Amino acid sequence: MILRQYLHRDPVAISYLLGCVGHGAGAIVDPLFPIEPYLRAAEAERTPIRFVVDTHLHADHVSAGRTLAEAAGADYVLHESAGAAFPFRAVRDGEALPLGNVELSVLHIPGHTPEHLGLLVTDRTRGPEPWFLLSGHTLMVGDVGRTELASDAASGARTLFASLARLKALPDHLEILPGAFAGSVCGRGLSGKPSSTIGFERRFNQAFALTEERAFVDFMLANIPPPPPEAAAIRARNAGQPSAEAA
């Protein structure tokens, strides 16, 4: 298995290249422009890109997902509820995206946005169980994703609480590879360390540790930071919609 993590600073975000070298199959998750580094890396690592996945319709940057998928001849993947105005590979909860000895299993974990998905990653050359979770902006290191960019904050928080309950059921040793780190506008208490585990976050992530829905909603509604500039217009653009529709 190969895994490469790309830490971006403008905007602050994380994207990934992963796949199976033996079977020559790769995927890119949450890519930003420019696309050339992903194409060069996939070629150098002998992992032709089969899937380009956006964990959600981003509101803080224009996604490179569709452009990269077209350039690589890959499927562009979103959750089936994304409602984008262009063709994409619509996946549902529990669906598998095969990459040779590596398998990406889709988890629908809404709350940060309604269509948000995560990817449980298994490397069968190491073992039959998932090794890590690409968690996007649902669970990050030190915080969870804000909930008012695609819905009202309270209903988004209730939905996110249910999604986090699914993640709490995962084993403590499972690694968490998020879609953002310190400096991102999509969280408040994010760490500069771009990886963690379910167990560590269960103990030391204040939002993830909350077990009462009311307390969690109150926590998420307190001190909501300003939205990213032009968040609605950017999200609409990533969905292929006129920006006025997001107003």
Results as ranks from 00 to 15, higher is better:
M1R: 12
R9T: 13
P11V: 05
L17C: 10
L17Q: 06
G19V: 08
G22E: 14
G22K: 07
H23N: 13
G24K: 12
P31C: 10
E36H: 07
Y38E: 01
P48S: 03
V52S: 01
D60H: 12
H61I: 03
V62I: 15
R66A: 13
T67Q: 12
A69D: 07
A72P: 02
A72Y: 09
A72V: 10
H79P: 04
E80M: 00
A82N: 01
A85V: 04
P87D: 15
F88C: 13
R92N: 09
A96I: 14
V106A: 10
V106R: 09
G111V: 06
T113E: 15
L117Q: 07
L119H: 11
L120A: 09
T122G: 05
R124G: 01
T125C: 12
G127C: 03
P128V: 10
P128E: 10
W131N: 00
F132D: 04
G136S: 10
H137V: 08
T138D: 06
M140P: 03
M140N: 01
M140H: 01
R146Q: 12
L149F: 08
L149T: 00
S155Q: 13
S155M: 12
S155E: 15
S155G: 00
A157L: 06
T159M: 14
F161G: 02
S163F: 09
L164Q: 12
A165D: 14
A165P: 00
L167A: 05
A169Y: 04
L170A: 05
H173F: 07
S184H: 05
S191M: 05
G199D: 11
N205F: 11
N205R: 11
A207R: 03
A209S: 15
T211S: 15
A215C: 06
V217L: 02
V217Y: 02
M220P: 01
L221H: 11
N223V: 07
P226I: 03
P227C: 02
P229K: 09
E230T: 00
E230D: 14
E230R: 15
A233R: 11
R235Y: 06
R237I: 02
P242F: 08
S243N: 00
A244T: 08
